[in-house]
Write a protein that binds this DNA or RNA. Sequence first.
DNA 1: CAAATAGTGTCTTTCAGACATTATGCT
DNA 2: AGCATAATGTCTGAAAGACACTATTTG
Lengths: 199, 199
Amino acid sequence: MAVDTALLTLDPADPELSVLQVRRTDGPGWALPGTFLHPGERLADAVERSLRTKADVRGLRPRQLRVYDDPARDSRGWVLSVAHVEVVPIRRLDSRRPRDTRLVPVARPGRLGFGHAEIIARAAQEVRDRYADRPDPDHLLGRQFTLGELHRVHQAVAGRPLQRDGFRRLMKPLLCPTGHLVTRTGGRPAELFRRVSNP
Amino acid sequence: MAVDTALLTLDPADPELSVLQVRRTDGPGWALPGTFLHPGERLADAVERSLRTKADVRGLRPRQLRVYDDPARDSRGWVLSVAHVEVVPIRRLDSRRPRDTRLVPVARPGRLGFGHAEIIARAAQEVRDRYADRPDPDHLLGRQFTLGELHRVHQAVAGRPLQRDGFRRLMKPLLCPTGHLVTRTGGRPAELFRRVSNP
DNA sequence: CAAATAGTGTCTTTCAGACATTATGCT
DNA sequence: AGCATAATGTCTGAAAGACACTATTTG
């Protein structure tokens, strides 16, 4: 019994939804981070453990995607894997080891074994669905942000342009205005917003 | 490692979405049909096996819901369970043993252990989502049916009345007219339809 | 002023909800 | 005729797509 995780993030330099991959220890190539489940361990704890040791990321709320149970999936034997998806802002990945990890756009995941390409595709779809009608539910942005910043993040997650005015009208009733203005780049100052109910 | 299945059906006498429960062998009360996974066995095969022995149902296409991994879930020890959902017409349950099984409306599942009530709620939601915009995807009806029959099935699955004319307009473009009319009860004869792409 | 970004107004199309009307068989 | 069911027509309001316009900053 194993867990595998598609850890997604946004690279601000290249605004595409990307997935963390780790160098395989048992052979050449890359794979999703994963681990075998310890006896009595919860799935979320195993995900946390695998990502803590491989990418130094903590405080996760992984979501299950599905179980992959094809007996031929893993050449080492019969391994059931519970696929998970998790989204973190890229600064949470700063402490990862660059030689043993890489970030790859989800649209071009490379050649992966274990059916990991399918997990990535499903993970990307899950995140896109989550972002379709909620303002940045996975906190890629901080507590406060402008509608322009939110717009760019949602476009990057969706992987396609989203109409600006329609996006504003959809998101504005879901946000809490702070009343503060901010000037980030040359242009009219933008209003800062917060998510509505935020821990 | 185990599988549990919410096997849903419609009782024509009482048009509510109902779930099959089996008498527990290790204690009093009722539970969802389930079994432990055999080594090397696929999840879908374990589901099929458990339902074949307990309800004499074959030819299933179970869908995964999620894994339940709470270590305190099963008092007998550490058991991960993959919950599944499956829908069959009630005639496929004719050969079940009446004393050891029962059909219960999903809205009132009774007192169940192992978190089975939550599985049932999630299963019902999954089926309702599937039925929201497709004509009877799980073949509760046969190959041919009238829009009135389809309407009654969808209402029973949804657990609430669905507007008749809106339902017709939504479903008609998804159906293939046969050109044949049929008179089932006193009233104007209805046209028979088929699903569009049907194996 | 020009460029860049933020914010608003408005038109059209589409679609769901709701109600009404017509069609055709049965007793 | 009267009832039951099937099928269609039409109005309205909400939401999405699309385009245009105004507002406010920097250089």
